[in-house]
Design a protein around this nucleic acid. Sequence first.
RNA 1: GCCGAAGUGGCGGAAUGGCAUACGCGCGGGUUUCAAAAACCCGUGAGGUUCACCUCGUGUGGGUUCGAAUCCCACCUUCGGCACCA
Length: 880
Amino acid sequence: MNGEKMAGNDYNFAMIEKKWQERWKEQQLFKADDNDTSREKFYCLTMYPYPSGVLHMGHVINYTLGDVIVRYKLLRGYNVLSPMGWDSFGLPAENAARKQAKAALERGEEPIHPDRFTEDNIAHMTSQMERAGWGYDWSRELATSRPNYYRWTQWLFLLFYQNGLAEKKVAPVNWCDSCETVLANEQVLGDGTCERCGTVVVQHDLNQWFFKMSSYAQKLLDGHAELHGHWPEKVIKMQEEWIGRSEGAKVDFTVTETGESLPIFTTRPDTLWGVTFMSLAPEHPLIEKLVKGTEQEEKVLAAVRKMRAQSTSSRLTAEVEKEGVWTGFHVTNPVNGEQVPLWVANFALMTYGTGAVMSVPAHDQRDFEFARKYNLPVRVVIQRDDATLVVEEMTEAYEDPGAMTGSGPFSGRLNTEAMGDIIKWLKAEKHGEGTINYKLRDWLLSRQRYWGAPIPIIYCEKCGEVPVPMEQLPVELPMDVEFKEGGGNPLASCEKFVNTSCPQCGSAATRETDTMDTFVDSSWYFLRYCSPEFMEAPFDPKLVHKWMPVDLYIGGIEHATMHLIYCRFFTQVLHDLGYLEFTEPAKKLFCQGMVCKTAYYCENCKWLPEAKVTGGSKSEDTIIGGICAKCGGKVRSEMTKISKSKLNIVDPDAMMDRYGADCVRLYMLSDAPPDQQQVWSDARMQGSWRFLNRLWDVVTGAVEIIQGEQQEIPDNLDTESKALRQKTHASILKITDAIEGGFRFNTAISSVMELLNKVRSAKAVHTGVMREAVESMLILMAPIAPHFAEELWETLGHTTSIFQAAWPRADKSVAMGDEIEIPVQVNGKIKARLIVAPNLSKEELEKLALEEEAVQAAIQGCEIKKVIAVPGRIVNIAVK
RNA sequence: GCCGAAGUGGCGGAAUGGCAUACGCGCGGGUUUCAAAAACCCGUGAGGUUCACCUCGUGUGGGUUCGAAUCCCACCUUCGGCACCA
């Protein structure tokens, strides 16, 4: 059972782990008590998984961390809420159905429905989770694809709709050809590819559903104040950048020829007098309107089409050559009445500001490059103080502070100082006003796919867009729909679903066939866990009040600008609508590191599994100088995140078969702090295994000695017993600190190892001291290796679960010991060591240090300048 | 380009102003064994050496301090995020 590498007397993890998993289930160890008011609550949430069917190492580190903290908090006496559920809507289930639809039909079978696919996966992953020993209150389990959950997702959509926070509008949106759906801004990566599948996203103007998240930009930023110190600064920073606040002014230009208003946003109103042209985004609606019927219409529209065809991605990278076309029109600058040409430029973005940019080539690098390319004038209105800018000699824009020139009433003033006055002046002169702009856009939530929560809207010819009455929810997904590859959304072709009657007037109407982004589902699941059976609303306010906010949220940093923004947005909206008393969903956020392992790459055969690398020599866990078994080419190695595509995956099931769940859990936490990258190493896994077996041997070996009548620990212990007792108490202190001060389980584990080494080398210690050491080790290890600790706890004669024991309390004076070693330095070099009482005074330390023979020798013939004695730490003698 | 984090033995890492390299891995030696594995014990930063001793040593160069891996300045390297956002 234990695998070929294990010796015969290794502990039998398979039997033990099963036994305790069953006991915990019987005892309902992880049942959170809604009615308990005596214990403090602790809501520990780990990001729920998409039920792909199998656990991967990312899940293992995430859920192990959560479970260790849950068990630690149980030992500290908290009423812990540790729920688990499934992010079970989404493309893979639907794609699987489509993919095998044809083959199934040929066999005369129905393809596997996404619902069955999903539920089967959930069943399998649940058993994997139980096997890993992760403790959840399964009575609160939820799956977002079940009607009793998505009914409330729909309810929340309607709530947002009723409050003007959900709307359908035409906008330029991201379309992924491979996923056959639109995507939210947050789901398009920096390089313009789909976050899910890597396909380059294209832009279309489409009529889509949005949540008005942009109106929460400031609130989302303000909320960070509460999160500083409790969320990783990196995540807060990423959100700040994503929200992208910038202060500036809105200034009203007008189209000279037509008198139409054309507002712009600028952060540099101090350069308004240097405007020499205006740039419009290619998507700007004004372009078509203006050029219609003019002689340049064809030329302008052709250029605009070309610019729009460039994907978002290439438009967004700095290397792309600036391109533009003159519309034939001009705009009038309100500050000086000047008329400057109106251009269309590929670097102007419709999705930021007003889609129109005032161009000041002397003081903006983009405008400068554009002006030089199209021979547009450059005018200096900010002078540097160390030299004089001369337009003809400039090779780049001058963007630093300086004195304003040729700027009407502001000439002569330092631009940075005048900024506030300029904005006041603009307002007084009715040319514009100070304003704040954000990069954050509205959240595009509709998806042209089947496997999601249907958007509960009906379209009626008479009444228009009509929300489904809340009491008619859920709008259920029809089960008998047809899946076929490239067949579009099966909902749209399901007449039974589409055709309905108007809830207002009763006449024939059609349903919205788009479903919601799965990030909508996950924006409120933590609320549902508080009252999973509640049937009057998405959550029971009383229970949400009891459990929320989440005390600790654990998950990957990849959600920094997706899920973690969305769920904050939902929480703030629900707060503003009076449903929640708090504005932030999670008090503390912890992001675990990636699990990495060596991957191998051959120029010809691409990524290789380790088994396909031959020759070379193995150093640690990496083959160096190996050869590709397929083509004989050289293989290079790279330490990288475990992933299917790089063929360096580790199968958690196989590891648990071989070493047991406790050992895998222990290993995951042993090597590095959990927020750092973890390096997977089979060799080090063996180290964890050895440690568990040593501990097992020590405890089982100690049973006989300590099982007799319990002995009080006397005051006059022998030296060795005293030393062990001191180590025990010092370890408890150190381990508790390591966990409380940032979940540094790696140092906690090494402290237990040190204590174990001490116990092992102890010859004849007092049995009370031995019992204290051994029991402390077991409780300290219980969160990490729970089955193992339970079994030994029982072996020691305890009849209740170790998780009903209390976390050990350290006596600080015992932990300190009676004597400590104090190094004595001369000019910073150690010359001697003193063994003294820990509380020995500064004066006595100084005296003892100077009396030391080695110190005397070292300071012979020198003049003592200063003696620094730090009680309990060090003595340093500075000499000349 | 901008912002941030990090850089310590052969390796993962510990020490956050006071004994650098805890703990573990690996490696070397030993015990046990017919043998191997496992287990156990000892050793393991580099260089020197008069071997119970000395010198050097935490990316590089400076600085502050009695004392710096830790604080400050500059630089190098690696990783991460952002990047035509007006």
